[in-house]
């Protein structure tokens, strides 16, 4: 985001949706807030060293539950080749809630989810990451495969930046916070790609 020159209004810039595999998002525990301001966005720092407050994910929906009577929340599980994403949508995300309500989970189907990642720390000290959906849509296999390619490329780019000699502040923070070697993420990418490569 650009700096604010002399208190002028900053033009609103939508945060891009970071492409991230389930096995990486699951490991993210560190949140970043640039200012103390209540409205300042909360970012989740990915182990590969980039911050995000919106993600694009794709995979197979394996479960959907409707929770609550008055304030309905839908919870869903979406699996990619590396792990699972926990998705939720409440009445504050009416569009996503309606879209999710329409999706049948009796038989497997591919979906794309755009949403905000949320890190929650349990009283036992375990951090769980879920995604509050803004949109969830049924897609075909080709779109899912394109997402795996896209996410593989983005992850490899982040790993390269993680190894850079002149690292960004976020990379430094990630190196300090997370202890998985870059090779771990490359192997995850390799495994995910292998699943869409015809033998």
């Amino acid at each position: 985001m650009s700096a604010i020159p002399n208190g002028q209004f900053m033009s609103y810039e939508r945060e891009p949706a970071k492409r991230v595999f389930a096995a990486e998002l699951r490991e993210a525990t560190k949140t970043i807030k640039d200012t103390e301001d209540e409205k300042s966005p909360v970012f989740l720092l990915l182990p590969t060293g980039e911050r995000c407050n919106r993600v694009l994910i794709a995979g197979t929906i394996t479960q959907k539950d409707k929770v609550g009577d008055q304030n309905i929340i839908y919870r869903a599980r979406v699996s990619d080749p590396t792990g699972i994403f926990f998705i939720n949508a409440s009445s504050y995300q009416p569009e996503a809630m309606h879209q999710l309500a329409k999706i049948d989970t009796e038989t497997p189907s591919f979906v794309v989810v755009i949403g905000k990642p949320n890190a929650y720390t349990t009283p036992e000290g375990k951090t769980l990451v879920s995604v509050r959906a803004e949109s969830i849509l049924a897609v075909n296999q080709e779109t899912r495969d394109l997402w795996i390619q896209d996410t593989a490329r983005s992850t490899l780019e982040r790993v390269d930046a993680l190894l850079a000699e002149t690292p960004s502040a976020d990379v430094l923070l990630a190196r300090e916070t997370y202890h998985l070697a870059p090779g771990h993420w490359k192997k995850m990418v390799y495994d995910a790609l292998s699943r869409i490569m015809p033998l």
């Binding site: 080709e142 495969d145 394109l146 390619q149 593989a152 490329r153 490899l156 390269d160 190894l163 870059p182 090779g183 490359k186 192997k187 990418v189 390799y190 790609l193 292998s194 869409i196 490569m197 015809p198």
Partner: peptide, 23 residues
């Protein structure tokens, strides 16, 4: 629409598999 190109998958697999050279 962008369509799937398996050549790109192969290239990415190479990049991901090439842990040694990268380091």
């Amino acid at each position: 629409f962008i369509h799937l190109d398996t050549k790109i998958t192969a290239e990415l697999l190479n990049r991901a598999g090439n842990v040694q050279e990268d380091d």
